[in-house]
Amino acid sequence: MDGVTATGVRADARIVARADGRGGTALPVLDSDGPLALRRTRADGARAKVMLVGAMSGPLGGDRFSLTASVAEGARLHIGSAAATLALPGQTKDEARYDVRLDVADGAELHWLPEQLISARGSDLKVTTRAELAAGARLVLREEQVLGRAGEEPGRLTSRLTVRVAGRTVLDQELASGPGAPGGWDGPAVLAGHRAVGQLVVVRPEFAEHPVEARPLGECAALIPLAGPAVLVSAVAPDALRLRRLLDEAIAPFNGT
């Protein structure tokens, strides 16, 4: 952390995972930074597990957070978080930023399964998540946004998710919500009053030859094969609990990777 400045906190956390040569995964780099505290937890077989622990609340207005995870050939890594991330208003009127960059090499696997991002009233956060995968990489990625705490108006949240496989973009989606977002965000084409929205992406090389069939999961969620070796579950729900249930059910057939 470069420290706390007049405009906010800057924190850059970094994780590197490598095959340890004995069938497990080593973490030669596990750099926490300020509010982004990383803890290694008990491995799950060959898969190393890292927990993102919020050491202080945030991101607040003006903060700049980034998290980079690189999973090298043959390594398997699971990243979760201990609690939801809460975007809050800061001292400054500047927007906060949170950039997540995930790189997964051939034969490597990453599970990026953080808890929800909650956009509290008066906050202004821009999140980007960019996953860069080699042709033979595997990924399970979940992102969930909750617009406002219980009964609260949401803050402004812009979130862009980009997934690239072998240099080709297979998914690029941005959602803007809250006060100041382009019109219609809460209307019938975008969220229609739902306060929880989520995406779950599974990338596997074998989907290239055995594509998954599309499946609607009611009018508010769908399992969708993307233009590439990947599937997406996209869902909106009234609240975080029901969103998680929808995503969990949709992903069940792909568990045990």
Binding site: R160, T162, T169, D172, Q173, E174, L175, A176, P182, P188, A189, V190, L191, A192, V197, A214, R215, P216, G218, E219, C220, A221, A222, I224, S234, A235, V236
Partner: peptide, 18 residues
């Protein structure tokens, strides 16, 4: 082309599958 906007409406996508 990465500079192109990617604005999306989840209900447009999900509704189209339904």
């Amino acid at each position: 082309t990465d500079a192109l906007p990617a604005a999306s409406g989840p209900l447009l996508e999900v509704g189209a599958q339904w």
